[in-house]
Amino acid sequence: MSLDTAMVRRIASLARIRLEEEEVGRMQAELNGILGWIEQLQAVDTTGVEPMAGGGAVSLRLRDDVVTDGGMPEKVLANAPDRAGGYFAVPKVVE
């Protein structure tokens, strides 16, 4: 499977990374190089193999339903590039 430029643009849009027009070709070539190399995995017979998702524990530990966090709006907002009072601010979103 190799990517055309339309697909490269679509992925960049999904990933919210602005690609300048002159970057598309280079990115396409690099991605296709990597994908071509990855292609060898299709040769492996994985019939009946359960996918392995995580690295470790077999099940979740459950914590108690107790309020132990929050109540620190200043710390939460301290790194914000734009804030308005107690809110984070972004360009207006139209739904």
Binding site: D65, V66, V67, D69, G70, G71, V76, G85, G86
Partner: peptide
């Protein structure tokens, strides 16, 4: 209905001041 959030220890009560019931996990 719970005291704290699904994946963090911040409170769930309705009507609090903005961003006061927020942990770094929630943010």
């Amino acid at each position: 209905t719970s005291q704290a959030k699904l994946f963090s220890g911040a409170a769930t009560a309705f009507g609090a001041e903005p961003n006061t019931q927020v942990s770094f996990v929630d943010a």
